[in-house]
């Protein structure tokens, strides 16, 4: 077991790792991730679909609030697209007809022509006028996470969701909640439900061990209506924020992590004190 320490029982184990190369588009599973201090999952939210009439301008070096981008909270239809961004920044989009997936876009986002194709494609999907398609936002070294609006430190946080809390929400509200709704980088299991909310650590703490890395739980994650969208269908079908509020009196699910010490994290790795 990588990163295991004899004698200290783990709090929980990593069940899945995800990167979201384009804000608002599909999750991409990772087998392992190499974390570095102050940085999130490499390549996470490195692109975003910026509103053409919004505040994003190429070269902007500060975080913007999520409403400056097309994302699931306002444009749930994006979830109906099966997207993949490869290591060379070629974006492939597929749609499903019954059990077959058909490619409807392949665009190299590093080229002017590819970005133009993507812009035209998303103008159509988002029902924007031709020519008012989103800017394909990309700033080397920056990421378009929701937390980035709070500063460059938070921009480098990664997100963790406890599967037990998701199951508890489902059991308490008589629904089935797909953890994919919360678009976390790290899914863990084995912790008691909601215990992750109590792991928020002071600035001086030693933090926790996540696989081979050391992390600090810095903030609880308050949820918005983006979680109402079924990631499998792109249909806004479950009022998750309201269910949270009714069941627990809060709108929290998951926490943000800051990386303190570099290391590799893989499936089944431990989260431990």
């Amino acid at each position: 077991m990588p990163g295991a320490t004899a004698g200290v029982p783990p709090l929980g184990r990593v069940r899945a790792l995800h990167v979201y190369p384009v804000k608002g588009l599909s999750a991409q599973p990772l087998e392992r991730v190499v974390l570095r201090p102050g940085e999130g999952v490499p390549g996470d939210r490195r692109y975003a679909l910026a509103r053409a009439d919004g505040r994003y301008r190429p070269g902007l070096r500060e975080g913007l609030p999520k409403q400056e981008f097309h994302a699931l909270v306002s444009d749930h239809r994006l979830a109906g697209l099966d997207t993949h961004l490869d290591a060379a920044d070629v974006l492939t989009v597929r749609v499903a007809m019954d059990t077959t997936r058909h490619e409807v876009l392949r665009a190299d986002l590093r080229t002017e022509g590819g970005r133009r194709d993507a812009r035209r494609f998303f103008a159509r999907v988002l029902d924007l006028p031709e020519g008012a398609g989103p800017e394909i936002a990309h700033e080397p070294g920056r990421r378009f996470t929701d937390a980035a609006a709070a500063g460059d430190g938070p921009m480098g946080w990664l997100s963790l969701v406890n599967l037990a809390s998701v199951r508890d929400l489902g059991a308490r509200t008589g629904t089935t909640v797909d953890p994919g709704r919360f678009r976390a980088n790290v899914l863990v299991d084995g912790l008691p439900p909601w215990s992750e909310l109590d792991l928020v650590d002071s600035e001086t703490g030693q933090g926790l061990r996540l696989g081979g890395a050391r992390v600090r739980v810095v903030r609880r994650t308050r949820r918005c209506a983006a979680t109402e969208v079924d990631p499998a269908t792109g249909v806004r079908d479950l009022p998750v924020v309201r269910l949270l509020d009714q069941a627990y009196g809060h709108q929290l699910m998951g926490v943000y992590l800051e990386v303190l010490a570099a290391g590799t994290v893989e499936q089944d790795d431990e989260l431990a004190a």
């Binding site: 239809r77 109906g80 749609v95 019954d98 058909h102 409807v104 494609f121 999907v125 029902d127 792109g234």
Partner: peptide, 14 residues
């Protein structure tokens, strides 16, 4: 309806 909605995710929704 579900199948057609899924297979037209690349259409202009209008």
């Amino acid at each position: 309806l579900r199948a057609v909605r899924a297979a037209t995710a690349h259409w202009r929704p209008s």
